[in-house]
Design a protein around this nucleic acid. Structure first.
Lengths: 143, 143
DNA sequence: TATAACTCTAGTATAGTAGTAGACTAATGG
DNA sequence: CCATTAGTCTACTACTATACTAGAGTTATA
């Protein structure tokens, strides 16, 4: 399950991407429009800022804006930053590998191969989707 | 992330499947051999029993055993039973759909389509893997 | 009919998620 | 240059889920 934090982060990035040409967006406005608790949002934006996804301008007329083109922002990386590894078990994670303590030797594990395939399936989707890909207005009822 | 509970459940099922021809297995033995806290394991086996995956025999010479052939036990269903829905967000779950409260209308959501693909990717793996599929001894160093 | 073994209710501890408070710092505009 | 706007940062708190544990109860077989 995605945490709310991650969902908030994605919503924020989408929002900022859509308003990229309209100058900095205030935390307060973003919070109000996206229905995110303001104080919590501050944390999230700060993390995205530190990681280089966002940039900010202080003082009057300031706010947040994308620091990278939407085509460069990979959703898998955003999810990893917020939620941690994509892998369902640490022992199959590429970016945060850790040996299972309570299991026997890995090459005898019968769970690992399946979970490895799950990890790959998730990563295939999220690492090949950029923020830009998410921007397209979703399917309409009619066209 | 898979919870430990789910991992324990899978390890138990595998264990029981491998010993299917040797009569009932004691909770205590299963706990010891699979390195699972006994009391916790009781809960897990009970759930698997109620769901029809396992059966038990009481009294002396009793224990647990598979109530279904390993080919009928779908890993996705076991994970759902233990961990809940596979979907990363409830609004794309097939088995436990729930509308997101803090989001706008679903057909305008830009996160949903991606997460739907993630859900499908996970389900594709887990719903097409049976307990039997997990039994094959994993790859060896040499043959 | 003793006892081995599963069944069940009701807890507790720890950790992670979600969110808040409030002081601090930096950058504008007048 | 200084008031104000707006982001930065540290340190909490509340809540929930996970991971267990205790102990009494029940059932079936030798």
């Amino acid at each position: 399950m995605l945490t709310k934090k991650t969902k908030y982060a994605l919503r924020s990035l989408i929002h900022l991407a859509l308003k990229a040409d309209q100058g900095p967006v205030l935390i307060a406005d973003l919070a109000a429009e996206e229905n995110i608790p303001k104080k919590f949002l501050e944390h999230i934006l700060l993390e995205l800022n530190k990681e280089g996804y966002l940039a900010s301008k202080k003082g009057k007329g300031g706010g947040y804006f994308l620091a990278q083109p939407a085509t460069k922002i990979v959703i898998g990386d955003v999810v990893r930053l917020m939620d941690g590894p994509l892998a369902p078990v640490a022992c199959v994670s590429k970016t945060a590998y850790a040996k299972c303590k309570d299991c026997g030797p890995e090459n005898e594990c019968r769970i690992r191969p399946v979970m490895k395939r799950v990890r790959e399936a998730i990563a295939d989707v999220l690492d090949q989707t950029t923020l830009q890909d998410m921007l397209a207005t979703p399917k309409r009822k009619k066209l």
